[in-house]
Write a protein that binds this DNA or RNA. Structure first.
Lengths: 347, 347
DNA sequence: CTGTTAGCGCATTCAG
DNA sequence: CTGAATGCGCTAACAG
């Protein structure tokens, strides 16, 4: 602890302000501002002097104060409900895309306490748009009335007609190939752990599930569809319900990998061999899915590419460009690993 | 005159301000502020009326303006050089830890353009500390003089004695078990693709490599140590140098998984069978490592736990608690997959 | 070339 | 109980 009063750091965290730089350099605040922003109208002598003081004090302009004053901040926001595998993959793609744009990236999350208030994206948007960030990418937004007139792009968006530009994977096609794979292996009792009903992606996956059955002439048993809501806990419950039935399914198609991994966990817990007695197919191909035992067969969606595209569109929007495509859809592919086999192929 | 009363939404993004709420409700700005912050001194009548207007307009306080005014923001910052596998895993752990704290999380990155200015963390810190965030977690900071007196915790920190509290995995022990594994398999010419020399973790991994050799009585050939700097491109170059030697090593120990994966790529490219003619061991166990062909044998460090611990320490720090341990070290374990075998075991 | 002034959106005194 | 005034750190007009 030093008692010396020579330092005038009053804010916690030891922030140095322009005020202090100006005082130290013996000039006015606005002169410091000019030096920092490289504005003309400063003698090279003062410039050097002030620069030296700035370096010595380690001054750096407060993002917040600057944001409040300026319209442009040069920062793009990625708004997520939580940092989980899907959103972080999208984030990696966004980071990749932003590298050459000159923008900085801020990812913002309320820490998963989303259910408290449906419509978190609306609140987040109000909080940061127009001040902290120049534009925002919304990852899996839930509400239907995000009628925002600023530059905003949604990834894997909600139900309902949205005026927002969107980027999403082709969930319908993806579910088709996932369920077709199971059907081709000979499965006839295929259960589904469904996703969050408010998300378009979840609805399409269920539709794909039904269409695949229809195309194969296999009737759908509606009691085999259980809500998993893209949530590990809920999906575990759903899987338990399914697998404890007197007539359990021979396969489970899960609306996302987190749910599929949960189902795999439950199967192991109940002593059900996978893929011997139960086949499981997921959706997403999050990196974690390859780490499972056995590694998960899943429908891959290009998560990073989703983030990449969203940033590209957003940057165009901010620049005032007109978007060619306002609703971009990316393809999915099947990744065969070890959780699927023909039914009754007990090991 | 009252020209400013007629002002509509001038900010882009359609942000609603207190100004507009006040005008719409026919009250003053300070009354709106009181309603929002639940301050006493407002009649329940006005309270209800103003609340109604707030809901109708969808008003939400600007994070930026509020940050500027208040000392506390209830937001914690995670500052990263880039959103890559390691930092995003730490981020997941941080998100997990923050769930019950009431804090929100902001992850900030300059978009990988770090090399332009060494010491990015110093700048980031100045930008956000004391205004946007109440405290910060620094992921793999590089400079040696981050002498910040605010609540800051470093994950996998830099070289030199740091006054900052730190959280890191036991790199020395990790490197020991990784190299021991190779030694036990019978390898005697083990190369190492080293990490970023400015990071303590990288130095310890090299030391572990040397100690393992010493303990086994196997001399170290210094020409077998090549700089990879935790960077994919650089590691690829290093691996190429190593594998094109007339007397190539029979195994490579890489300072992190990104480097190991790069080495694997080069081996494939050169037609060298892994693990038949070359064994590879990585460090980190990022999710991607299991996706490789063949899946990577690696030393796992608890990346999420790193983030979790850092947040726990930071929250304590912000609350003014005294830290029990200022330098936390977590254990590592070996994950055997398919990139290691006895030397000369050509397939 | 430099300093003074006026806010950005909000929370907090302190008068009325 | 309510509103006008002040300032957080900064930039952009405008004065000197």
């Amino acid at each position: 602890m030093n008692d010396d009063m020579t330092r005038e750091r009053d804010r916690p965290g030891g922030r140095v302000t322009m005020q202090q730089v100006a005082a130290e350099a013996g000039v006015s605040i606005s002169t410091v501002s000019k030096v920092i922003n490289g504005r003309y109208g400063v003698s090279s002598e003062t410039f050097d002097h002030v620069s030296a003081v700035i370096n010595r004090l380690g001054y750096e302009a407060s993002l917040v104060a600057r944001s409040l004053r300026n319209t442009r901040t040069n920062v793009i926001g990625v708004l997520v409900a939580d940092f989980e595998p899907f959103s972080t993959e999208v984030l990696k793609g966004a980071a990749d895309a932003i590298r050459d744009t000159g923008y900085e990236l801020v990812a913002y999350s309320a820490g998963g306490r989303v259910d408290e208030h449906v419509g978190w994206e609306r609140r987040y948007l109000s909080r940061v748009m127009g001040t902290l960030v120049d534009g925002a990418v919304l990852v899996t937004p839930t509400v239907t009335d995000v009628q925002y007139d600023g530059p905003v792009v949604a990834v894997d968006p909600h139900t309902g007609r949205s005026s927002l530009p969107t980027v999403a994977a082709d969930s319908l096609q993806g579910a088709r190939i996932g369920v077709d794979h199971l059907l081709e292996l000979g499965h006839r009792r295929i259960a589904m752990v469904t996703g969050r009903p408010d998300l378009v992606s979840a609805q399409l996956r269920e539709r794909g599930y039904r269409e695949a059955h229809g195309a194969a002439g296999v009737p759908v048993d509606d009691s085999l569809l259980v809500l998993g809501a893209f949530d590990a806990d809920q999906a575990r419950g759903a899987a338990r319900t399914l697998l404890r039935r007197p007539d359990p399914p021979t396969a489970i198609f899960a609306a996302n990998d987190v749910s599929a991994l949960a189902a795999l966990e439950v199967a192991t817990e109940l002593g059900i061999d996978v893929p011997g007695r139960l086949s499981i197919v997921g959706f997403d191909n999050i990196p974690e899915s390859a780490l499972a035992h056995p590694p998960l067969t899943t429908v891959q969606q290009p998560m990073r590419e989703l983030g990449h595209q969203a940033i590209a569109m957003l940057v165009g929007l901010i620049a005032g460009h007109h978007l060619e495509e306002t609703h971009v859809t990316l393809e999915t592919t099947l990744v065969r690993r070890r959780t699927t086999a023909a039914p009754g192929a007990a090991s």
